[in-house]
């Protein structure tokens, strides 16, 4: 039995310690917003936060996530949308959307580290792959979210409901 803290809630799962976190989330905890893309840490579709750091969950044995705070896309929005999510909607970033939850988690981690990232910061941090080619909008939306966060009391569009 392994104890996991996911999105602020505690879960006990009966799985092999080497099972990648991705599959524990998807098939055992029913959190299917995190996606499988490659299984080799190449594409970033499976990105979650472990203690605030963006990590590819397809290659992380679940045992290594025990005792740490796991945040998935389902836990990113609190009462309001996260600024990244709001900017993603405003700038119509997703196309098929499959890679976008991982993309959003990477972008959110970047903003936590660098509240006003430069284009170079974005290039370095956003290693997620997108087959639909949403990159230009990803960049634009990250800058927009950074601005949104910098403005106190800025209106955020949409809710998490």
């Amino acid at each position: 039995m392994l104890k996991l803290n996911v999105n602020g809630r505690s879960h006990t799962v009966d799985v092999e310690p080497e099972m990648p976190l991705l599959w524990v989330l998807r098939d055992h905890l029913n959190l299917r917003g995190t996606k499988y893309g490659c299984g080799m840490s190449l594409c970033g579709a499976c990105t979650v936060h472990i203690d605030g750091v963006a990590v590819e969950s397809c290659s992380l044995p679940v045992s290594e996530a025990v005792g740490k705070k796991i945040l998935t896309i389902e836990g990113l929005a609190k009462r309001d949308l996260h600024p990244i999510q709001a900017a993603w909607i405003e700038h119509e970033v997703p196309q098929c959307g499959y890679c976008q939850t991982g993309m959003i988690m990477s972008a959110a981690a970047l903003l936590d580290k660098k509240p006003r990232p430069t284009d170079d910061d974005i290039d370095a941090a956003m290693t997620n792959l997108c087959r639909c080619g949403t990159y230009a909008r990803v960049k634009k939306a990250i800058h927009a979210a950074a601005e949104m966060r910098a403005l106190p009391g800025a209106a955020r569009k949409g809710t998490a409901s």
């Binding site: 917003g33 997703p94 976008q100």
Partner: peptide, 10 residues
């Protein structure tokens, strides 16, 4: 379709 995709709905 975008809001649901941004929230990670299945």
């Amino acid at each position: 379709d975008i809001p649901d995709k941004v929230l990670g709905k299945p």
